[in-house]
Write a protein that binds this DNA or RNA. Sequence first.
DNA 1: TGTTAGCACTCTTTTATAACGAGTGCTAAA
DNA 2: TTTAGCACTCGTTATAAAAGAGTGCTAACA
Lengths: 343, 343
Amino acid sequence: MLSDRQLLIFQVIVDDFIRSAQPVGSRSLSKKEEIQFSSATIRNEMADLEEIGFLEKTHTSSGRIPSEKGYRFYVDHLLSPQQLDAKDVDSVRSIFAERIFEMEKLVQKSAKILSELTNYTSIVLGPAVRENRLKRIQIVPLNNEAAIAIIVTDTGYVENKMFHLPPGIDTGDIEKFVNILNERLTGVPLEELNSKIYKEVALVLSQHIRSYDAMLSSIADSLKLPVNERLFFGGKTNMLSQPEFHDIVKVKNLLTMIEHEEDMYDIIRQNPSGINVKIGKENGVSAMEDCSLITATYSIASEQLGTIAILGPTRMEYSRVISLLKFLSTDLSTALTKLYQSK
Amino acid sequence: MLSDRQLLIFQVIVDDFIRSAQPVGSRSLSKKEEIQFSSATIRNEMADLEEIGFLEKTHTSSGRIPSEKGYRFYVDHLLSPQQLDAKDVDSVRSIFAERIFEMEKLVQKSAKILSELTNYTSIVLGPAVRENRLKRIQIVPLNNEAAIAIIVTDTGYVENKMFHLPPGIDTGDIEKFVNILNERLTGVPLEELNSKIYKEVALVLSQHIRSYDAMLSSIADSLKLPVNERLFFGGKTNMLSQPEFHDIVKVKNLLTMIEHEEDMYDIIRQNPSGINVKIGKENGVSAMEDCSLITATYSIASEQLGTIAILGPTRMEYSRVISLLKFLSTDLSTALTKLYQSK
DNA sequence: TGTTAGCACTCTTTTATAACGAGTGCTAAA
DNA sequence: TTTAGCACTCGTTATAAAAGAGTGCTAACA
């Protein structure tokens, strides 16, 4: 087990390195107020901390930097829940200052503020519409060949898709068709839409509408993937200011990774609810092995909806970022719940 | 006026520099097949070309590189319309291979292919919906307080916005309201929507609906800015591979500029129809002073719709990029026209 | 008179060497 | 157990020299 002194020294080293990005030496440590031991003592302790695997050297005679294992320990055991300072609180609150209606806007703004506040990259996984319920389907024919299918959910989310009209269908039939769909499908969660259409609606339709099957498959197809939890980014270029990313190749790999939305989507999405910290190689992606990813989930009422994340260097201000994310995710949940409940 | 020999030498220098990114010396030039003069002769000509301002030296005893003025001349007078090679043609054609409905998808795919083909950054200004005409307005009430306004254009573009319902309005009124809007506004170009609502529709409404004015202003507000010509990007990180952008600060400035969509929007949008080449400082933005921007416009029938652009280093493969853009913009126009006409 | 060979000169890039300094590990004394 | 002291390591900085690519200019040449 670690002695109190070791803990103290370790904590100060990590804090110092997070601030300065420079390896921390025994002498500079001994000069700090909170540390009263001589540099030699500190050196001994540092050697021990290195042996446990909490510290590393960049070369034989350099100061120490925290290892990934060290960061892990720091995050898990040394982080006291810190008070956000007033400025940060204000900034976050400013997101909700204007009365914003669309969830997406709110989420987008959150991403922006978060990246400005931290100088890291923020990634927000937009509200999952998976469990939203259908409010209305509309079909707007554009001409004889094509029409737009529009679905609106109870949360005000709108999705649309163009589709081919079966040749020779008449306007009356389309109207009937839409009425039946609305009658039968209103209130159905989006993810069940597709199966419900075939199971429950097909039969009714066949009785009322002539070329219903061609129409049905077109529509069903359009409704297949309305589950678009979009990703929103803020401060994609912030990483370029971090000293650990002065290497163009590293930066390029990282940015390319970020640009690749499908991958990012998986990485963000797989996180469990609550706060989650992935450090360096824990991310499982080589482009991110010098990064840490902190995620927080938000929800409406009790249904988990989306994820806010901050991507920064492993040398990240864990404490502050975690506090920020906790605060923002709570506020976001509250705001969205209120928005949703009022409907 | 320039002699033929000077032209030849200048052209070879530019081509060589575009390929190699290295200053071109007299000796290496004299070794080329197409050039039969001695290095001394070439040196004399180079000195002249420098005097005119077409060439520059990076330092006293370096080889020459083209100046911005040089590139300008090169682009304006030395570029013979080059045949695209089969590969490029195939790649561009692949954009239109699948039967894609939504204009946006088509445009997005174009951006992607373009950046992959060139290894530069592509920027596509999506179809302008400004002159599209209203096909249908729908209003879907979500609850007593809020509703979604949806407009569909004759090109299949859908825009939606949430708005507050005036307290105490009833469903019948909303329906009447929508009917009147559709009656009066169908076929109206989107950009005139807002003014038309107040001029022509307000009076009729006032006669039929009680709390029409609150409703009207909410709706009109929602329809205010549906002119969203969105920007689509491809290969944002490609610049990082260009040797002239090995400098982190430069890269950061450029990427930050690109991320700032409003600015980019202005820069892209202001270009006249046809092919347009802006070289270095001509772009008028310091972050882009080592870049050239080549734009091409595309259209539906004869109405100019949007812009495709390639952003690369000033040392860009002008000839190839211009050919590509010409080719793609033509094809895109054809495809969109077909899509649109069929409606 | 236009072209070219030759040469001195310039400036960057590379290589080598030394000096510096921040930091360590170890030993021995307090 | 702590600490002062010291030899040693290694990255960084500074300096100098050498190499190399290229130029401009002069003078000879066709």
